[in-house]
Nucleic acid binder design. Sequence first.
DNA 1: CGGCGGTCCTGTCAGC
DNA 2: TGCTGACAGGACCGCC
Length: 265
Amino acid sequence: MPELPEVETVRQGLIPYVEGRVIKKVILNRPNIRRVIPADLAQKITDKKIKAVRRHGKTMIWDMDGVPGIAWHLGMSGSFRVNSEPKKHDHVVIELDDGGEIRFNDPRRFGALDYAGDLKGTDPYDPAFSASFLCAQLKKRGGPIKTVLLDQTIITGIGNIYACEALFLTKIHPATSAHTLSKKQGITLHAALIKVLDDAIRSGGSSLRDHVMVNGEAGKFQHHFNVYGRTGKPCPCCDGAIERLKQAGRSTFFCPQCQPAQRLG
DNA sequence: CGGCGGTCCTGTCAGC
DNA sequence: TGCTGACAGGACCGCC
C-alpha cells in the first residue's frame, strides 16, 4: 500500500499524538517483521522524547532526543492506529507519557523497524529534485522508464501506482528506454510526478486494501486512478481499453492509444 | 554496475 | 460450499 502519499498522510496524522511525547514502553509482539528489529532498540528509546516525525521517500523517521532516531517502513500492508482496540498483526505497540498508545499493524510483515541510517535516493519534495536533475538521471539509465521510476536509489517514494499514473499523464509508454526520453518529456514527467503526488496527498492517499490514515479513515485517491488496476476499462481520455503488462515482475497499467510505443531513433 | 527473477508473508478474489 | 492459483501498495539478494 504505502507509497509516498500514504506514508505522508500517516506521518501527518501521527504528529499531533507523538511529537514532543516521551516513550514509556515499547512492546514487540513480533521481534521480526521483515527484518529482525534490533534487540536493544526498545530499551534504547524507552524514556526518550520524540523530537520530530520526518519522512524520506516511503520511510517515516522519528528523531529521538539523545539517541539514534528510528525508521519505520510500512512494507506492503503496514498501518498505524492510535488509541485503538488490539487487532491481529499488531506487531509493535508504543505507549506514551500522556497515556496515548500507538499500534503498528502489518499482516504481510514486509515492513521494518530499525535505527535510522543513511538516506538513499532523492525525495520528490527535496528541492534537489528538479526537472534538470530528473533529466540527468534518466540519461544514465537504459532500462524501461517504469522500472527506473521504481528504483528507490534514484527517486525514493514513487511506487507502482504513482509510476503508472504519472506516465499516463505524460503520455509516455512504460517500456520506453529512460535515456531515449527527450528533455521536454523529462520536464513534463517531473511535473506529472509532483502533480500526482500532490493530488494523492490531498486525497489522503490511495486505499486499495490496507491503507488507512491514523484516524482509521480510508484514503480517496483510488477513485481518481486513470489507469492503475483498470485493465479492460475505458481510458478517461480516449475511451480505449486500458492494458496491463508485466515489467520486472510488477504489473504496469497503461493506455496503448494515449501512451504509444516510441519509435527508436 | 545494470537488470531481472525469486523470495519473504498473509489475505482476498476469481474460477472451477 | 470448498479448493486452488493468481495477485497485491515493497525491496532485498543472488545470478548473469
